[in-house]
Simulated scan of single mutants.
Amino acid sequence: MPERNMEFGKYGARGVRGHQAVAHRLDTLAGFVSTPVTVRRGLLARLHYLTRSDRARAAAREAGLTVTDRTLRAWLDGSRNPSRQNLERIETAYRAVRRRNVARHLLARLNRQGRGTRVEFHPLDQSQVGGPRRRAVTYRTLNVRRWDRVVAAWAAADDGALDEAWINDATVDLGSQWGQYEYITAIGFAA
């Protein structure tokens, strides 16, 4: 098994780490509120999501939103606006709670009772790499059957664990070519 790329982009190749592309795709599948938190509608949507039940409130506090109920009511009725730091905390707490809530459902969709999900690997962009240093990397597909560690690391927002899970549970099944797909331009899968 080849080692990981240590100096990616040294000769002009462009792309993102595979686990970052997977995290972005899972975020898309999770269906976050698209309106920014800085807009009143986006703020209200996030606050309603975080305060709709006692369990949601406890998860929001655990995720870092530690304001009083009085402050939350003032934000909801519009008598006060959250500071920039509190807007960031609301966004962080919303994403953490949303990931935790959809992880189980998303895992079931991706595993599909052991059948897995077909993943498309779009290779890195080598248009800026000189001819002698350009590698022959092609578009590949792979059926990933083990999503448990990947989804758990994504739900916990643990970048290192997500990288390890993606390499060890998915791309290693590409055989000796897995190192060529550590960096990619895009990844695609539908669940």
Rank of each mutant, 00 (worst) to 15 (best):
N5F: 14
Y183N: 05
R95L: 12
A170K: 06
R149G: 05
T171P: 05
D27R: 02
T171F: 13
A74K: 04
G175M: 01
W147Y: 10
S53R: 11
G15I: 08
I167Y: 11
V16Y: 09
V150N: 10
A93S: 04
R46C: 02
A157F: 13
N168C: 14
Q128L: 12
I90W: 03
A153L: 06
L162M: 13
D159R: 12
V97P: 02
L174M: 14
T171R: 14
Q128I: 11
W75R: 03
I167P: 00
A157S: 12
F121G: 00
G64R: 11
V119A: 15
A58H: 04
L87M: 13
D148Y: 12
S34I: 14
A45Q: 15
D158S: 06
A152P: 00
E88W: 10
A59D: 04
R57G: 05
A156V: 10
E164H: 03
A30Y: 03
V102H: 05
E164A: 13
F189G: 01
A13T: 07
A152T: 06
R145M: 09
Y183C: 01
A30P: 02
A59Y: 06
L65F: 03
T35V: 15
T28G: 07
Y94M: 09
T35Y: 07
R99K: 10
A56C: 09
R4H: 11
Q128S: 09
A155I: 12
R112T: 10
R52Y: 14
A155K: 08
A21W: 04
Q126N: 02
R135A: 04
V97R: 01
H48Y: 12
M1E: 12
A93H: 01
R4P: 03
S83A: 08
S127H: 09
D163T: 07
Y49W: 03
T35C: 03
R4V: 01
D125E: 03
L47M: 12
D173Q: 15
R104N: 04
L142Q: 03
V144D: 05
L50A: 06
N101F: 12
I167W: 14
L47H: 13
V16E: 15
S176R: 07
R100F: 08
D158K: 07
L110D: 03
A153M: 04
T171V: 14
L43E: 06
D159Y: 02
R84L: 02
E7A: 14
V102C: 13
R100Q: 13
G64N: 02
R73Q: 09
G188T: 08
I187L: 15
V33K: 03
G130E: 04
L174G: 00
P82F: 07
S127P: 03
A186R: 15
R46H: 13
L124D: 09
Q126T: 08
T185L: 01
